[in-house]
Design a protein around this nucleic acid. Sequence first.
DNA 1: TAAATGACTAACA
DNA 2: GTGTTAGCCATTT
Length: 114
Amino acid sequence: MSPLYVSIYELVKAIPSGQVGTYGQIGRLCGCSPRQVGYAMAVSPTDDIPWQRVINSRGEISVRSDGFKDTEQYRRLKREGVVFDARGRVDLATFQWSGPDGVWWSEHHLEPPL
DNA sequence: TAAATGACTAACA
DNA sequence: GTGTTAGCCATTT
């Protein structure tokens, strides 16, 4: 396994239960493109990697190459307390992980929530 | 080696 | 809000 994958998996494992990260967010944090993050999730070797907590920048579960969304991902997130709206989307402003050091908020020039 | 392939995204129109 | 386009870059073939 390449060092890149190791850092991606480490980052994903740092996302707390009940929160989500985006492919782009993880990509920026580990210095690679979002596509690599998606690819790394697709081949994630073990179940101790919370791959379900990585979704796309629109707050949706990404469509897989077979053209279907992963319903297990939806179930897992819901079980962790993540709320989906009627169109199956997550409110990123509420549920997006702030990063290992609050990085995400500063990147977006925002103040962290109380 | 070279080309194809993505669980993507930002910036447009 | 929708649709298109260009860029992305490690992995795979």
